[in-house]
Design a protein around this nucleic acid. Structure first.
Lengths: 206, 206
DNA sequence: GTCTATATCGGGATAGAC
DNA sequence: GTCTATCCCGATATAGAC
């Protein structure tokens, strides 16, 4: 594989990423990807045999960038509150680089649910460490009693959902002003962790 | 329009709802809708002139069922904590009837962002009442200081996101057992409001 | 490796009989 | 209102020249 090959192949993948993520597998057109990559349609088939193969390449890369990774943080040795704060900051940053990613992944997983198992099996996703940590904090009386799963889902929901629902929220809350919405999201890096910590920290109820 | 017309028309809309919501506009096939409705493909065009028209009918109905309505509750005279509890219960119930709805709506709005304005303008969505209420509670010192928008987005996120991410969460948390996941969602009708109220209720800090 | 030309097919839409 | 038959375009994919 020569140097030029790599460039073209990369250009295709980059273009494919943009188009697939914006339009989805079914809505994407090979012609549009070729145009965006500045090459001919048939070259797409030269590098990736079919639309489906190309899509798989894009989807896998997207999935592995967004779903795991952050798990390293979750399974680290940091104190719980620290983890929660870092998670919000890091994850919101990652999604900010590609705000359409969450809807894309969710839509495609739902289109082809068999993918979920296939994808996750090949990653080391395993939340057991953080779950144990939460249970221990509860047992030690350091935080209020809470089911670790609900806590984790709450955290993830509050970080990701504002991107998923961006079109509506942006319109309803800020009359379509996307800069203000971006600032709103930025605030959430602090707001979300404090909201959570405030909810679970001891010393409140009696 | 005879009685039989109505039945067929309803059958088509019902079939279209299922197919469109599951596959999206681009992934849906008129043939599949016709099959599911037990009629001929060309009858679809007799009742609705085009695929797009049919889609619009489905989407509008879906949107208006899911987005507003609940606003009545938000703008009622109930106490804040009461509202939060009722919102979680009612909204989770509504989505439970059609768990794919959120991803569907989000995906389609993103495909055609112009829809957002068009849709929302024709509804009376206006969260001002609840926002004032939250600000008042803060001013009176009844709850901890919080930006009403973040509070509302937190509430909505925690209710809807578990449906959006169901495929992944169900797999990671419960090894694909959908009954257990349904129970998990059911718990959230209580867990989410208590989590929120615990976070904002006074008497904790200082 | 990259292009042009073309095969092939699926799917939305229409015509027209009943 | 409902069906069958058909049109026709757009999109993936392949063949083959350069």
């Amino acid at each position: 594989m020569s140097k030029m090959d790599l460039n073209t192949e990369q250009a295709i993948l980059e273009a494919a990423k943009q188009v697939f993520i914006q339009k989805g597998m079914d809505g994407a057109r090979m012609q549009e990807i070729a145009d965006k990559a500045g090459i001919n349609k048939s070259l797409l088939h030269y590098y990736y045999r079919s639309k489906n193969k190309l899509f798989e390449a894009v989807f896998k890369e997207a999935f592995f960038k967004f779903i795991p990774n952050i798990m390293d943080l979750m399974n680290s040795e940091l104190p719980l509150f620290e983890k929660i704060r870092l998670f919000a900051i890091n994850y919101i940053d990652i999604i900010n680089e590609n705000p359409l990613m969450p809807v894309f992944i969710m839509h495609e997983l739902n289109r082809d649910p068999a993918k979920v198992a296939e994808m996750i099996k090949s990653t080391g996703i395993n939340p057991s460490k953080i779950i144990i940590q939460i249970n221990e904090e509860v047992a030690k009386g350091e935080i209020n009693p809470i089911d670790p799963f609900h806590l984790i889902v709450n955290l993830i929901s509050m970080c990701i959902f504002p991107f998923v629902a961006q079109p509506i929220l942006q319109y309803v809350i800020f009359n379509e002003n996307s800069e203000v919405y971006a600032a709103f999201i930025e605030q959430r890096k602090r707001e979300v962790p404090e909201f959570i910590i405030n909810s679970i920290k001891k010393d409140k109820r009696s």
